[in-house]
Amino acid sequence: MKLLLTFSKKKNREPVIAQVVKETGVLISVERAHIDSTSGEVLIDVPDTDAPRICALMEAKGITVRILEHGISRNQDECVDCGACVSICPKEVFYLDAEHQVHLRDERCVLCGKCIPACPHRALSQTL
């Protein structure tokens, strides 16, 4: 399950993710991180069964946690199956099948947002 963590640098000076890994023994994979001087946003992937425990712990440490149920979403009415998104995505979420139709491997998506402006038909969006 993918969790989006938002934290402010002022409050969290500790290595929270490392602490949670240590306390729970759950291996957390960091898929994307954006951190600047005042705040940060980190997308992590954890086993579904451990997610409630991890959420609770993170929240106790002052982090806002949002569960991301879906990756990028596509409006089928707007999509023309061009495939412009295919080579843009760093996670190879999009692929063409033998019928030249574009499909999504939703579970790979880390919601980096790169494909959204690259779609000429405005078919992609981030539903939160």
Binding site: V80, D81, C82, G83, C85, V86, S87, E99, H100, P120
Partner: peptide
């Protein structure tokens, strides 16, 4: 290097 088409082959068909 990965390639992307801007035109749609499915629609062309």
């Amino acid at each position: 290097v990965r390639t992307s088409s801007l035109s749609s082959y499915r629609k062309a068909l």
